[in-house]
């Protein structure tokens, strides 16, 4: 019975219980992910600091552990500056759309077997739809600020997001074909038949395309051209300050966590351990989070290692390398699936 039917059917006994358990899950997932967002920024600064032989944040709290909280409080109490020539309603709504798009994708990500807010049949398509909605926040922020830097940043970002969305969608088609479902829980369960409980080995090409596309889709280094500070100051959110800037910041880290979660669910076997000996008892979500931390670390590692791409290189990589590669992966997967 879907939620819609539950609400629509009058006198449904379970309705209240259902809504209550739903709200509880929403609160838990929201709290956990917000904490992860805050400490992802700390983890990033520490990782990059140590890679560049620095200490990273050390002042606030023991070993700088309270730094994200101090940053949050600072952003919250900063003055909110709005450009006089900006398009006010669009300027106000842009960061909210960015955050909304990132947050709503969380609803379909299964943290462990059965623990998901909405177990819908089109989970993967829902995530693709929400990530395409995210580009609106960026375009609208860039346009409404009425500033050349933010406008160029917005245009770049949206062109990049649209191009890499195609590669990302195509790279996931192989997973859909192997799993025979778009439901994220079903996809994880389908991987139990494969080595290491993962689609990683049969879908290595798809995984390669997905990881690159996910980095570009979230506008992270080395594809962080929308925020190229040497040419565009800060890109699309250059005119934003205070908490409105904070919302963009949270949305970016949230999008990273969601892309990593999709990678885990589709290629790395979700909550299942790679070998059954390694199963951690009584903590069903342990492997999901271990995999999440590894992927997030790879994000930061790539950022600390690689220089920024040039814009035309970025476009030709997306259209001339990743999309043909993903298409070839689909054809080969289909042939192998028919033959076996």
């Amino acid at each position: 019975m879907s939620l819609f039917e539950m609400v629509v059917t009058p006198g449904s006994v379970d309705t209240l219980f259902y809504i209550g358990s739903m709200l509880l899950r929403i609160v838990i997932i929201f709290g956990v992910i917000m904490l992860h967002v805050a400490y992802a920024s700390y983890f990033e600064r520490k990782t990059i600091g140590h890679m560049q032989v620095r200490m990273g944040p050390m002042v606030v709290g023991p070993r700088g552990l309270l730094q994200p909280i101090a940053d949050g409080i600072k952003l919250f109490f900063k003055e909110d500056i709005i450009p006089a020539e900006s398009d006010k309603p669009v300027f106000y709504i842009a960061p909210i759309i960015s955050l909304f798009a990132a947050l709503s994708s969380l609803a379909v990500v299964p943290l462990f077997n059965g623990f998901v807010i909405a177990n819908i049949n089109i989970g993967l398509l829902f995530i693709l739809a929400m990530s395409s909605l995210g580009s609106y926040g960026i375009i609208m922020a860039g346009w409404s600020s009425n500033s050349k830097y933010s406008f160029l940043g917005g245009l770049r970002s949206s062109a990049q997001v649209i191009s890499y969305e195609i590669a990302m969608g195509l790279s996931l088609v192989g997973v859909m074909m192997l799993a025979g479902s778009l439901n994220l829980t079903e996809i994880v369960k389908a991987q139990e038949r494969y080595p290491l409980n993962m689609f990683l080995i049969p879908q290595i090409v798809g995984c390669f395309v997905f990881v690159i596309a996910a980095i570009a889709e979230t506008n992270r280094a080395p594809f962080d051209l929308p925020e190229a500070e040497s040419e565009l100051v800060a890109g699309y959110f250059v005119e934003y300050s205070g908490m409105r800037f904070g919302l963009f910041f949270v949305a970016e880290y949230m999008a990273m966590i969601i892309m990593a979660s999709v990678g885990i669910v589709c290629f790395l076997g979700g909550w299942n351990p790679p070998l059954s000996i390694l199963e951690i008892p009584y903590v069903p979500f342990a492997w999901f989070f271990i995999k999440l931390y590894i992927l997030i670390f790879i994000y930061f590692w790539v950022r600390a290692t690689l220089p920024r791409y040039r814009y035309d290189h970025l476009m030709s990589l997306g259209w001339k390398v990743l999309i043909p590669l993903a298409l070839a992966n689909i054809v080969i997967t289909a042939i192998v699936k028919v033959l076996l």
Partner: peptide, 11 residues
Amino acid sequence: AAIQVIVYAGA
């Protein structure tokens, strides 16, 4: 519904 959002709204 998903295609409506991905194709029309997203592209």
